[in-house]
């Protein structure tokens, strides 16, 4: 297979707070290949956003510390990059769309000011720096995300737009410079179903047109199903299962993935599965071994003592669970 575009190797992220150390990320391994659409699902508080913020290097440090691990982007470790290089990375290579577009936009500046600032920043090194050029470019990117009447939108303040329009503006900002990797952190969660559908379709179209890799984060399984090629399932700070999206939906192996899938209500009716007992553990004093074992119905003695590594169970299908340690 091709060289990975982004590879997170055994990364730990801790937060030093008053009550002790929150051991949030616990050995994350994550790979994105060029042009690939990768999904990441997990319940709230499992560390999805923390992982992504670590990639962008926007975790507040302190309290966050990264005691171990590396994030390789095209072979270079993001965690060791100098400020100048990091700026270039954020400018030209990786960009991120946040969950809540209302919080992502500054309420006291117009969309025009904010978008044109982004363009000026992204294209500083380029030729296109005169005022008119930037304005034309702003209108062009707004058109690209199918916003009606872009000239008016430029003069509006974020609060004058609807939630869906704001998210489109955020997407347009992420797309001003050609990007190699787009991180979409629950892009539709705060929006209505019909709008969410529109936003997801727009993202997919744009990514395919520009051949950008996408990491799509979601807490709902449905949203990633039609959008991604490969899917990671995350629980309490580490990946528990990875497979091709189709394969994972057809044959989930990890007890957590199975529970999650069974708990999702279906259009075909017939009631909802049981759900999973308990909740995501406290990070100050997380369970030893496999962090899922207190909630797992098939837990064995070994689960308490050792953290399961990834076991390969098929082509592109890996599970971090001792149930599959002898699988060949």
């Amino acid at each position: 297979m091709a060289k990975p575009l982004l590879e997170i190797k055994d990364m730990y992220v801790w937060f030093k707070v008053f009550g002790g150390i929150l051991k949030v990320l616990d050995g994350v391994n994550f790979i994105v290949y060029p042009g690939e659409k990768v999904g990441l699902v997990g319940e709230m508080g499992c560390g999805k956003t923390t992982t992504m913020k670590a990639i962008m290097r926007i975790l507040p440090m302190p309290p966050a510390v990264i005691p171990r691990g590396e994030i390789l982007f095209k072979g270079q470790d993001i965690l060791k990059m100098k400020q100048v290089k990091l700026q270039h990375l954020r400018k030209k290579e990786i960009s991120m769309i946040f969950q809540d577009p209302t919080a992502a936009l500054n309420p006291v500046f117009t969309i025009g000011t904010q978008l044109q600032d982004t363009i000026r920043f992204a294209e500083k090194s380029g030729k296109n720096t005169e005022k008119e050029g930037i304005r034309t470019r702003a209108i062009q990117v707004l058109k690209e995300v199918s916003l009606p009447d872009p000239e008016r939108v430029l003069q509006n303040y974020p609060l004058q737009l609807s939630g869906g329009m704001r998210q489109r503006v955020c997407i347009s900002m992420a797309l001003v410079s050609t990007n190699e990797l787009l991180i979409a952190d629950e892009p539709g969660t705060s929006l209505d179903v019909t709008i969410k559908d529109q936003i997801l379709r727009l993202l997919k179209e744009l990514a395919e047109k520009r051949n950008t890799s996408i990491i799509l984060i979601s807490h709902a399984l449905g949203a990633v199903r039609g959008m991604t090629d490969r899917l990671y399932v995350m629980y309490a700070g580490s990946m528990v299962e990875v497979a091709k999206t189709k394969e994972l939906f057809a044959h989930p192996l990890h007890p957590y993935s199975q529970g999650l899938l069974a708990a999702t209500p279906r259009l075909t009716g017939g009631g909802i599965g049981e759900g999973i007992d308990g909740r995501i553990p406290e990070y100050i004093n997380p369970p030893t071994g496999c962090r899922f074992h207190p909630r797992c119905k098939q837990a064995m003695p070994i689960c308490k003592d050792k953290k399961p590594p990834f076991f390969k169970v098929g082509k592109d299908h890996e599970v971090a669970c001792f149930l599959f340690q002898n699988h060949r």
């Binding site: 709008i195 559908d197 399984l221 449905g222 199903r225 039609g226 279906r266």
Partner: peptide, 24 residues
């Protein structure tokens, strides 16, 4: 109905196909 994201092919079959959501 056509906008909701589902998790299996059986459900996909239940969704009306033609309508693409637009507007707000």
């Amino acid at each position: 109905l056509s906008s909701i994201s589902v998790i299996s092919d059986e459900e996909e079959a239940l969704k009306p196909k033609k309508i693409i959501s637009k507007g707000e």
